[in-house]
Amino acid sequence: MTSWITICDTCKRDGWDAASASRTDGESLAEKVEAAAESVADIKTRRVSCLMGCSHGCNVAIQGEGKLAYTLGRFDPDEEGAAQAIVEYAALHAQSDSGQVPFRQWPQGVKGHFVTRHPPLPKEG
């Protein structure tokens, strides 16, 4: 089942300077995540203009229909492997029936980056 990586493209980490930066930190991370996810089955990406996690920037959400959803943050868009780790985790999320991925399977690059977990919405009826 498809999992989505929603990337905040307006995130700015501490020290971001509009005068010297050509784009936001979120835009930089989004570009890398999109490239890493391009050929991965069952993963889709999208950008949004604010996940309201400014104190945790750079933020992404991992979501899938009927599954637990996760917000991850505090990524450095210039850190080698951050985007790949996000995509690897999302692929594991996609393979999971519930969205829960055992800790031992988490890519090293996402450990310490989880901010919130949300239960799936209840089915109507």
Rank of each mutant, 00 (worst) to 15 (best):
T10E: 12
V48I: 05
E88N: 05
I43D: 00
P122W: 10
A30S: 14
E34T: 12
E38C: 07
Q100Y: 09
A19Y: 08
H118D: 10
V33H: 03
L121G: 11
F103T: 09
F114P: 00
P77H: 15
L121V: 08
A91C: 09
V33W: 06
E34D: 01
F103S: 05
G73K: 09
D78M: 07
K67P: 05
K111A: 10
T10V: 14
S22R: 12
S28L: 10
G57F: 02
A90T: 07
A36I: 08
G112T: 08
R117T: 14
A21M: 13
E80N: 14
E88M: 09
M1K: 14
W16D: 06
D78V: 06
W4H: 13
W4M: 08
V110P: 04
C58A: 09
A19C: 09
S96V: 04
A30C: 08
W16N: 02
G81L: 13
R74V: 01
V101Y: 06
Q95F: 07
G125D: 15
D9W: 02
W4I: 02
S28W: 06
Q105V: 11
A69P: 00
G112H: 14
L51G: 01
Q105C: 08
H118P: 03
I43N: 02
A83F: 12
C8Y: 07
T6N: 00
N59A: 01
A85P: 08
E27F: 02
A69K: 00
